[in-house]
Amino acid sequence: MEGLERFIGEHPFFAGLDAGYRQIVSGCTANVRFEPGQYLFHEGEDADRFFLLRHGRVALEIEVPGRGALTFQTVSEGEVVGVSWLIPPYRWAYDARALDLVRAIAMDAACLRGKCDADPTLGYDMMKRFLPILVDRLQATRMQIMDVYGASD
């Protein structure tokens, strides 16, 4: 546990987290690794975990029949994979595939949700950490939709 708690303390996502909460959160974590090409999760599966990347990159993909898997974002170390665990019905909306050897902290979603429900102050702290990620992704998506670089064909 001590190692995991240290990893949590070092990860930018949990920067500045109260030591007491760090210990609580650590109770929901596991240390995981994925080989290149291995999937962290698939679309439609239960979103029962999310991942704090410590090393390596992960491609977020959507399978399009006839076009294969389209990557819409890559996520690197220091960043977070997975937000669907926050919102019912807790189901993944895309595939996540390791591009390199990936080391990550996996957070048990049901466990963390339970702790957040039990202590709304912790819950609010978690929301404040996740909301900027969601807003950044929303804004990035807007920019991608605008296709600002102009048509190439």
Binding site: R57, A59, L60, T71, F72, Q73, T74, S76, L99, D136, A140, M143, Q144
Partner: peptide, 9 residues
């Protein structure tokens, strides 16, 4: 096999 996402990321 490199980054995907907007340049600001």
């Amino acid at each position: 096999d490199a980054h995907v996402g907007v340049v600001t990321t």
